[in-house]
Simulated scan of single mutants.
Amino acid sequence: MVAAAAAARSRKRRSPPRGLGDLHDDVLERVLARLPPASFFRLRAVCRRWSAAAASPTFLHACGRVPSRDPWFLMLSDRPHPPLAFDATDRSWNRCRAAPAKGVVPVASSGGLILYRAPATGELVVANPLTGASRALPVPPEAHGAPRRLHAIAMYGSPYRVALFAGELPDLSMAVFDSSRDSWEGPVALSRRHEAMLLPDAPSQGGADDTVYFLSKSGDVVATNMQRSASKQYSSVVAASSERGDGDAVAYFLSHSGTVVACDTARRTFAELPRILPVYFEYSIDVVACNGAAYAVVLAEYLDTASLRVWEFAGGAWRQVAAMPPAMSHAFYGKKADINCVGHGDRLMVCVSSGEANGCFMCDVSSNQWEELAKCVNGDGEVNEFLAAFSFEPRLEISV
């Protein structure tokens, strides 16, 4: 009896291990959904069963149950090449889907979506860069009278919203598209408000509501005479605010004189914040959101060297929260370099470009740790040089 039981246990121990092929379909889909996003492009080529799983609606549902994914950064260049993204987890370069239409350029991002705009017509298209699914938005409403100059485009929230800010100080207006209603609201006028009245609602850490920050890329505060990319001309970022209701936002952009303008979309007001540097300084600046807070990133020259610093507006004043190590930033001294930045979580990516020096850097804002990204080499052995980036969460299940 004892010998028979021991033999049974021995046979049980010697049974062949079970593999992925033995899993039930729903279990297999849950396993595949947790693979790195770059693997999604290869699922259909493994076998027929995996190809069928990748096309299944229940597989997309399983992907939606994955709570979060580390960001990808869609990289922008002035040279034609297949769309490329930097995977912040694997530290690798991956291909993305091509633009949803000919002639459109990315101008904003939110969650797993990228917003594209046609410079010639102003048409807006939303796309998932992982799947290629896209849709054109309805034509935005026009303000009464002559067309107004577009300052910035912001994309935020879930369901997503797209905000257009137009006009010239002190005559500003905004129009907002709500994807849940598939319609535009506005344009509505924004009235000037004293800065002190806006400070209690200044951006703060924490909270689940949306605060929008954006930056006009023209103006004489920029240290370089280069024409900025059309993709970053209306760049925007989104940060959280604990004081806002669903759909409300405070928008920040750079005026032509170099001041930061704060627009409260709920109260339909705006105020100008203090300068970071004196008006006679030349510097390149961008606004970025990291982990629920908004920051200004400034590249300037001091005492025969270049300095790249990260600033936060709090308590009525700007304060420095991070700085690139001098050994890194000094390489851009005298180069008339331009910076374009994007954030996601604790990560801040800075693309520095000039006629003489280029580079992409990643910073952990919470620890002030900086690193230069590895170069991206194309099939001809040439190094791709990137001007800017947009961050997105690579998710197959996100619909447009």
Rank of each mutant, 00 (worst) to 15 (best):
V237F: 10
S242T: 13
S242C: 14
R244Y: 15
D246E: 07
A251V: 11
Y252Q: 04
S255R: 02
S257F: 00
T259Y: 04
A262M: 01
A262K: 01
T265C: 06
A266S: 14
R267F: 03
R268W: 00
F270N: 02
F270S: 01
E272D: 06
P274H: 07
R275S: 08
L277F: 15
P278T: 12
Y280W: 03
F281R: 12
F281N: 08
F281M: 10
S284V: 11
I285P: 00
D286M: 05
V288E: 08
N291F: 09
A294Y: 02
A296H: 02
A296T: 08
V298R: 02
V298T: 12
L299Q: 09
E301G: 06
E301D: 13
Y302N: 08
Y302A: 09
Y302R: 12
L303G: 00
D304K: 12
T305C: 14
L308A: 12
L308R: 05
R309C: 13
W311H: 08
G315D: 10
G315Q: 06
G316A: 11
W318T: 05
R319D: 06
Q320S: 14
A322Y: 14
A322G: 13
A323F: 09
A327W: 05
M328N: 10
A331M: 10
A331W: 07
A331V: 11
F332M: 11
Y333N: 04
Y333E: 03
K335A: 13
K336E: 11
N340L: 00
C341H: 04
V342F: 04
V342N: 08
G345T: 09
D346L: 09
D346P: 14
D346K: 11
R347Q: 14
V352I: 15
S354D: 13
S354F: 15
G355W: 06
E356Q: 10
E356H: 11
